[in-house]
């Protein structure tokens, strides 16, 4: 059964106003419909500006759609307000692209990871501390105790992204949007983060929307892949279908731009 269903999702951004005449618009997401099944890693692939990030933000209600609807567990989340919105936020989380930017530089590791618990009033005192340590251990940051009082600038990129993942998972969400979670990281630590995310998916029964421009990463992570181009989904299928047997010319273009090892030896 689908955890998330979008129907004819559209998001239009107003851009600059012309001096005379009207407002100009850019359509970032154009008539997008898809379903994400429970415990699935659903990949959203495309070049920058294709609308994949906007799509992820719409699913989390960080942006309001211009039209269309989003059903989460059968409920249309585009109409949620107040308390209902807050409890929706508890069930969905996001992992951001740049771990140097997604953690508040003035927050310690403890402050960052505990913040969702504080906002959601889930646990306090010793219980809160226990949960924070548990979340840090879950992302294999050990010994967790020694990291609690560190600031982001004292951590490596990989450690920061692990802290960001711990923060995302501390409220035990069902659905996580990962927006290019490894693209800012050193190649040598990417595999570690990706494997961690797959393990967490299995351990915590997560459903994931995985946004990336990197088809190799998408192939490694995802069960199904949707290819976005200029705000529309041009191809959607299992990762085998999309990568082994691409139908749309844009997908083929994307695939042919993936560097291969033998092309490296030539230069």
């Amino acid at each position: 059964m689908a955890l998330i269903t979008t129907e004819n999702l559209r998001k239009v951004f107003p851009v600059r106003k012309r001096l005379f005449g009207g407002q100009e618009y850019v359509t970032a997401v154009d008539d997008v419909s898809f379903k994400i099944h429970r415990r699935e890693v659903f990949g959203l692939v495309g070049e920058s500006g294709s609308g994949k990030t906007t799509c992820g933000r719409l699913l989390l209600r960080l942006l309001e759609p211009t039209s269309g609807s989003i059903y989460y567990d059968g409920v249309d989340i585009t109409k949620l307000t107040g308390r209902e919105l807050l409890s929706f936020r508890r069930r969905v989380q996001m992992i951001f692209q740049n771990p140097y930017e997604s953690l508040n530089p003035r927050f310690t590791v403890y402050d960052s990871v505990a913040e969702p618990l504080i906002i959601q009033r889930i646990a306090d005192g010793e219980e809160r501390r226990r949960r924070v340590i548990e979340a840090l251990e879950r992302v294999r940051l050990t010994p967790a105790e020694s990291l609690l009082r560190r600031y982001p600038h004292e951590l490596s990129g990989g450690q920061r992204q692990r802290v960001a993942i711990a923060r995302a998972l501390v409220t035990e969400p069902d659905f996580v949007v990962a927006d290019e979670p490894v693209s800012m990281l050193d190649v040598s630590i990417r595999a570690g983060i990706l494997n961690l995310m797959l393990d967490l998916r299995d351990d915590l029964d997560l459903t994931m929307l995985f946004i990336t421009h990197d088809l190799a990463v998408a192939r490694y992570m995802c069960d199904r892949i949707a290819v976005m181009h200029k705000g529309r989904i041009v191809e959607l299928g299992s990762k085998e279908d999309v990568i082994e047997n691409p139908q749309h010319p844009y997908t083929r273009a994307l695939l042919s731009s993936v560097p291969r090892l033998h092309s490296l030896s030539k230069t």
Binding site: L62, Q93, M94, E101, S102, L103, R106, P116, A164
Partner: peptide, 24 residues
């Protein structure tokens, strides 16, 4: 992004202003 991250965590305007922006 850390402001957006706070919003994802459910933070309201007041929390973002006082805890995330003011200290910075």
């Amino acid at each position: 992004p850390f402001v957006e991250a706070a919003r994802v965590a459910g933070a309201g305007d007041r929390r973002i202003l006082l805890h995330h922006l003011a200290p910075n």
